[in-house]
Design a protein around this nucleic acid. Structure first.
Lengths: 308, 308
DNA sequence: AACATAATTCCATTAAATGGAACCGTGTTT
DNA sequence: AAACACGGTTCCATTTAATGGAATTATGTT
């Protein structure tokens, strides 16, 4: 690769170094052996910042894709080049491959946008998501009972990724939420999910967040967040009191996936003027109840391999 | 990659083939079965300057991802192995990489499902799609004028991929259409889009389709399809008369992207009992009008790089 | 407990990605 | 209009990382 060793890409296993033990020690230390570089538990990794890890060529391709996808306008070749600091030839081939696979599309002339194949793949991911399909009728019922918007989200690193949404009126931004990610610290679902984690895990994540103030009431420190989450853990209900968007409030509860595979949550969201304290209290009970029901049903559907 | 001359450009545009006779196929010459999924490559007007059809490692990873995504249940390691006929070690690493990148997730134990990252990427692709964002208010107006479901789709190979949908009632399958793909020959949008292509291109695609009968009225031959498309090209309106789903009819019109970047279409769909001949005629005019307006607006927004 | 099957790891081999430099083509400047 | 500059594309020797067969370990079944 070349005369110019770039620290970023040089070593295979960047972050976590390879197993300190000798490779020949493969006998029976399996007790603690979560494979060194392939973490099967989602907690250790996250996110959005620099994602260069040891997934080789695939990881590099996705880095390029991320740049294209997370930009807010079509990117030209040189834009991407500047963003990634990579040799021209290499980047060109990577982009060509992404385009050939339909993951990106060349707009007009030489401007790249995320491609259709992503939509096709995501449609499958969405329709086959077991939590989502189990939850769907529950969400619908909850929406009918409350008349407000209902969200379903899952924990992903330091964010909540929304899996589904039920709202009354089709606005112009229709399914704008599905697949979108929001910070944990300023959303009801996010805080509810945090409350399901171990103390250590909560603190760990709280520490790694970037607290940007969205409204006057946003919690902007790990301490404030952890205190509130602690309270949520006891009551089972989380609130967003215009912490993410002015005028918008919500009540949320968490859902524990079976197998400890993940934590999810759901919420009822609406404008503050329609959701006063008494309304929130009422909705809160419904949310809690719905969450419980979804939990029970997923347990019944996915769980029963253990108790036979 | 290939130490091979790119001599044979003979292969057609379909974009497939991508199988440059792997040199490593001396041991097992398993003709790598390209899945029938015609991959991407929208434009592909005949003799494309056969630029690079081998996407190398990325392509192989996506092959694995496709298997996982297009299955209708979580796949275990061996399932994928049987489907792809690949060495264990290789497949294992590929899956591990996909999992490490979040493109697939290990369900329960060793069962893989498409991952959250796909949703996140697709959300960006969707929200930033220029046609979709331009069309959105038009679709909403059309829905309000007709009271029926409105679809927006784009041409992708032999399929229509739905970009958006506006419907009155939130059913349980809410955004089920977005990102989904349907055949061209049995959908209104599909036939409308075909009518925008050159005669040669129409015939080429019609020839490559697999005509599966969905209902008694499905067109099941290239001849029948081409005849109807020819008629559509003159009238500007396409119909689906219960050809895809019994009891469901639709009227559709096509939209030409600027720059010849692609062809799209939109439709009004509803149950046959609500959409009789006179209703369809009325809706048809609205659809045609809406398509025209979207076309004009995309032209205005995306086109004017030329006149400055 | 013994067996069968699935999943994972190892490592020499080799294909494939890399990246520097040369090459085109289009839009800008003088 | 000619010369230029810049963004994009192609080439090819070098080096990396993907490969795949076999051995090893985990998991589930009789």
């Amino acid at each position: 690769m070349g005369a110019r060793p770039k620290a970023s890409q040089a070593d295979r296993v960047g972050g976590e170094d390879q197993n300190p033990q000798h490779p020949s020690a493969r006998h029976r230390d399996t007790a603690r052996s979560v494979p060194p570089d392939q973490r099967s538990n989602p907690k250790s990794q996250d996110a959005v910042s620099d994602t260069n890890i040891s997934t080789g060529t695939l990881g590099k391709a996705l880095e390029v894709l991320d740049v294209i996808a997370s930009a807010d306008r079509p990117m030209r070749f040189t834009d991407i080049l500047n963003r990634l600091d990579q040799p021209r030839g290499t980047l060109h081939r990577q982009i060509s491959n992404l385009a050939a696979e339909g993951l990106v599309t060349a707009d007009e002339n030489h401007a790249y946008v995320p491609g259709l194949r992503l939509l096709k793949l995501a449609a499958r991911a969405w329709s086959r998501n077991s939590l989502r399909s189990v939850a769907a009728p529950h969400l619908l019922r909850l929406h009918e009972a409350t008349g407000e918007t209902v969200h379903l989200g899952v924990l992903n690193g330091l964010e909540v990724v929304y899996l589904d949404k039920v709202e009354s009126r089709q606005t112009v931004r229709m399914h704008s939420q599905v697949g979108n990610a929001s910070p944990l610290f300023c959303t009801g679902v996010g805080k509810a999910m945090l409350a399901r984690l171990s103390l250590h895990d909560r603190a760990d994540r709280a520490e790694r967040m970037h607290y940007t103030r969205h409204t006057p009431s946003t919690l902007v420190s790990a301490e404030a967040l952890l205190a509130e989450v602690d309270h949520i853990a006891r009551t089972g209900l989380a609130y967003d009191r215009e912490e993410h968007e002015p005028g918008i409030v919500c009540v949320a509860a968490s859902i524990q996936h079976p197998e400890g595979e993940g934590v999810a949550g759901l919420s009822v969201t609406g404008p503050a003027y329609r959701m006063g304290p008494e309304q929130i209290a009422r909705f809160g009970e419904l949310v809690r109840e719905t969450a419980k029901n979804i939990e029970i049903e997923t347990d019944a559907r996915l769980g029963p391999r253990h108790r036979e």
